[in-house]
Design a protein around this nucleic acid. Sequence first.
DNA 1: AAAATAATTTAGGCTTACCTAAATTATAAC
DNA 2: GTTATAATTTAGGTAAGCCTAAATTATTTT
Lengths: 218, 218
Amino acid sequence: MLSLSEENHLKSIFHLSINSEDGVSTNSIAKNLNTKASSVTEMLKKLNEKLLIVYIKYHGAQLTELGRKTALKIIRKHRLWEVFLVEKLDFKWDEVHEVAEQLEHIQSEKLTNELDKFLNFPTHDPHGDPIPNPAGFIKITPKLKLSDLGIGETGKFIGVKDSSSAFLKYLDKRKISLGCNIKVLHQEEFDQSLHIGLDETNLTISIKSASNLYITKI
Amino acid sequence: MLSLSEENHLKSIFHLSINSEDGVSTNSIAKNLNTKASSVTEMLKKLNEKLLIVYIKYHGAQLTELGRKTALKIIRKHRLWEVFLVEKLDFKWDEVHEVAEQLEHIQSEKLTNELDKFLNFPTHDPHGDPIPNPAGFIKITPKLKLSDLGIGETGKFIGVKDSSSAFLKYLDKRKISLGCNIKVLHQEEFDQSLHIGLDETNLTISIKSASNLYITKI
DNA sequence: AAAATAATTTAGGCTTACCTAAATTATAAC
DNA sequence: GTTATAATTTAGGTAAGCCTAAATTATTTT
Ligand SMILES: [Mn+2]
Ligand SMILES: [Mn+2]
Ligand SMILES: [Mn+2]
Ligand SMILES: [Mn+2]
């Protein structure tokens, strides 16, 4: 049985591993978890002892297969609870993360799997992130950003890179919601902002926003 | 914000207060929480500082109004989650307590109140215990036990005193479930066991079991 | 390839929540 | 009312998880 802190470190390492071949740095974990590098070092030693990561002094940490599965089981719970909160309890997609951070640590396989069933085995959470299966398996699909599309191309909005409450609320305000189709109409030269077509309406978004929207080409 | 341990101590004091005018003893709390008396003493000092209890050395602890409300808010969450697990996730009434012990510590008023709404504002948990309102108010009704009934009298089964998994499963096996009517037919002299009528069938239960069943006279 | 800088680890502390053993106080038995 | 016993508190430790400051190692600049 892992402690809350151990679980959070594993999750953090998992998320920081996504875009990096080699070890995750002590500092990046510390930043991610709002602690100090020295605290992280201690934890890395412990997780290494428990065979959840491979930790080489001064060279960061990498999840072992066991560590990866363990992280994904926590992420599975996080995402299932997020679905529950949005689908059943009328939470908005920008309100769920904080609570899910707590709920993801509840220990009960039965609870997790019954919740999964109750929600009808959802495949993605409210932010478009995939939900791992009970064994901790997940299909990682390479993601395209809206900013990667060329003029005239259309994409389906399938996820957010930045899932901060601020960005999610911004999307709500512009009526940009998961599943909608977005056509790139034109790009401003001086600031790269994009004119896009969304359902009936057109609007303009900054290149920064566009690079935080995951899409699939249509 | 209270720690998990602080919350558990408050809850324990609340439950142990039910049948006692004066302070709850250090030892009883220690037994209840599976810790040692010396650990409890430390915590009582702290809760006293925080104005959640009145603690007098060598004379146990009593909840303040604030402490009582706080305890009842935790108990509210516990019982709402138990309802959720039974009603929505197909848990049996003997399987919910452990998980609810974890879920009761999740901090989110919105979550609790939305859950309450989702469950249609249940008044009692799966064991017949009343659910406090959002402000931590609860109506305590004096409880009769089946063993208090006279021969020939009938009661409606409304709650369990002993909610151990073993006892709950025993009741399942005998098809004794919340809400059913029980008539006391006869009492054996040598061991006080009761012959009771339940729907169409008759059966015999020990006086010990009978004293763990809460009923209202009909 | 040194020197400067940045990242990381180590050393030494702190707090919470536990524990055991000893001392103290309350309660029960005589 | 003493005395014995039980309950409780105090004293002194431990482990986890955090911290700051100092030392060490890696990386970048010159
Ligand atoms: Mn989240
Ligand atoms: Mn999410
Ligand atoms: Mn319970
Ligand atoms: Mn209950």
